[in-house]
Design a protein around this nucleic acid. Structure first.
Length: 557
RNA sequence: UGCCCUGUAGCGUAAUGGCUAUCGCACUUGACUCUGGAUCAAGGAAUUUCAGGUUCGAAUCCUGACAGGGCAGCCA
């Protein structure tokens, strides 16, 4: 776990205020103990990252502990693949849990607790079907009706519950229910189901059980068993808190404090786990870790740093009101981090050939290039310069728009770390497209020599043709075209141009040794990282994020 | 229409009854620049949802309205 420096003020939010107050009044005598409780039924997304940073961050700052507990009470949806990915993602974010636990670790204890509640007359076996339970529950505005099975004797309930466990009844034919209040205005208190009969192989307990506890019954007791002091969850569980506390109080066991906060919403992003699954299953994206996915593994593959995501989680704060964070804030956190740490390189994504007519035919110069102007220790490297180069197609315009500072016929521009060149003539193909530019260079303008006072407005990047290495570059854009892609027709907001694959990119030779996941800034273009698909023979880069582009903004106007 | 929660610049967020309502992102302008990047400087933007009340003093406390969100799985 990373260390907090003295210069970072502790983030203040209402959750920490509650904890501070609990410490002041000594509500919990020992340490602060939180937990991150994912259900292993999907991959973690950026919204989970908020929760992870909250829970682990509190444990870190209060010298407490944080468990990783899998809420694995529904074997029909859960898989080890998800367990593994979740662990990897939490670790990658930079956190280490104190204990790795599973709600299924407590199945026996939970069963015992249920027996206790039956003995107290607080739970009963119900024979109502799913449909009937729904009808008996009433509605938001009408009270419910008591189940006809509600008044079975303790003895009968004990026997039936044991038989449920033993597999005497088919799936769905009986439930164990808490006996609370069918008239409660809080629907969660209308005799909620505690156990259902479900024959499914559990990823950890196999076929040992055919009854499984419901979330409401399992979660609080799991917290209690682990002596979690602060059980932090999202807003939709607010109405469940009375039930959470009811079970624990009836059982007479340790009572944690549940605190609810507002989940993260991100603009141009969809966070529904179910729909994310759909994107993967319907092959709208390539995988859970497709760089367009808002999953942690997607961000990782795209080239995001864990530091930037942690910083993001801190900057967005924690509160109870619904919120939508501008995805630009996330990108800002990323650029902040990458700007300081990513080495700069030259890469031409859409090449246009430039020939320096007055440059000696077979000469190759090795020019000095700074690796990172933001980091003195990053040093410098040599890049080859020769008569034939590639520049970016966008960096030449035959008919320049206003305020265009790049190469145009008869005009000069600086080649980064090299010379000032002047466009003398252009060559077009049959279709009238510019395919080659002839220039002359001014040899007194070599970078770093200071022999010429000549100033030009524009500086462009380039790559020497004969030394350039080839690569594929994948350009990603937002997955959705609207800020809030919700509703049943959310798929019509998918961005058809969310991925553009460029196969003819030219990179400076230094990049030949780039390792998978390594991050670079391609000067003037953005930050790029090496994709998992990359090999020595065929380099593949992902565009993680563009640089801020003032020109693009001007162009739009 | 029952219960619960939430309303502070475009988006987030701070204020804990006391100066002119904080900070970040976004936006605008300027400086600088061999990345139209980074950096620096400046600026616009909030009658704190509304209406009453308590108080010398209210974003904050009270009452009422209005608006938004959540809840009727044998999902979590």
């Amino acid at each position: 776990m990373e260390n907090k420096t003295e210069t970072t003020p502790e983030p203040k939010n209402f959750v920490r205020e509650i904890i501070d107050e609990h410490i002041r009044i000594q509500r919990f005598d020992k340490h602060i103990h939180t937990r991150f409780p994912p259900e292993p039924n999907g991959y973690l997304h950026i919204g989970h990252a908020k929760s992870i940073c909250l829970n682990f961050g509190i444990a870190r700052d209060y010298n407490g502990k944080c468990n990783l507990r899998f809420d694995d009470t529904n074997p029909s949806k859960e898989e080890v693949e998800y367990v593994d990915s979740i662990k990897e993602d939490v670790r990658w974010l930079g956190f280490q849990w104190d204990s790795e636990l599973y709600a299924s670790d407590y199945f026996e204890q939970l069963y015992e607790y249920a027996v206790q509640l039956i003995k107290k007359g607080k739970a009963f076996v119900c024979d109502l079907t799913g449909d009937e339970i729904r009808k008996y529950r009433g509605t938001l505005t009408e009270p419910g009706k008591e189940s006809p099975y509600r008044n079975r004797s303790v003895h009968e309930n004990l026997q039936l519950f044991q038989q449920m466990r033993e597999g005497k009844f088919p799936d769905g034919t009986k439930t164990l229910r808490a006996k609370i209040d069918m008239n409660s205005p809080n629907i969660n208190l209308r005799d909620p189901v505690m156990y259902r009969i479900l024959r499914a192989t559990h990823h950890r307990t196999g076929d040992a059980w055919c009854i499984y506890p419901m979330y409401d019954y399992a979660h609080g007791q799991s917290d209690s068993i682990e002596k979690i002091t602060h059980s932090i969850c999202t807003l939709e569980f607010e109405d469940h808190r009375p039930l959470y506390e009811w079970f624990i109080k009836e059982l007479g066991i340790f009572l944690p404090q549940q605190i609810e906060f507002a989940r993260l919403n991100l603009s141009y992003t969809m966070m529904s786990k179910r729909r994310l699954l759909q994107l993967v299953e319907e092959k709208i994206v390539n995988s859970w870790d497709d760089p367009r996915m808002p999953t942690i593994s997607g961000f990782r593959r795209r080239g995001y740093t864990p530091e930037s995501i942690r910083e993001f989680a801190e900057r967005i704060g924690v509160a109870k009101r619904d919120n939508t964070i501008d995805v630009a804030l996330l990108e800002n956190c990323l650029r902040d981090d990458l700007n300081k740490h990513a080495p700069r390189m030259m890469a031409v994504l859409k090449p246009l050939k430039v020939i320096i007519d007055n440059y000696p035919d077979n000469q190759v110069e090795e020019l000095d290039a700074v690796n990172n102007p933001e980091d003195e220790n990053a040093g410098s490297r040599k890049i080859p310069f020769s008569k034939t180069l590639y520049i970016e197609q966008d960096d030449f315009k035959e008919i320049p728009p206003p305020k265009y500072f790049r190469l145009t016929p008869g005009n000069e521009v600086r080649l980064r770390y090299a010379y000032i060149i002047k466009c003398e003539s252009i060559v077009k193909n049959d279709r009238g497209e510019v395919v080659e530019i002839h220039c002359t260079y001014d040899k007194d303008t070599k970078s770093g020599t200071g022999t010429s006072q000549k100033k030009v407005k524009g500086t462009i990047h380039w790559v020497s043709a004969s030394q350039a290495i080839d690569a594929e570059v994948r350009l990603y854009d937002r997955l959705f075209t609207v800020e809030n892609p919700s509703g049943d027709d959310w798929k019509k907001y998918l961005n058809p141009n969310s991925l553009e694959v460029l196969t003819n990119c030219k990179l400076e030779p230094h990049l030949a040794n780039a390792k998978i996941q390594e991050r670079f800034q391609f000067e003037r273009l953005g930050y790029f990282s090496v994709d998992y698909d990359s090999t020595k023979e065929k380099l593949v880069f992902n565009r993680t994020v563009t640089l801020k582009d003032t020109w693009a903004k001007i162009e739009k106007k």
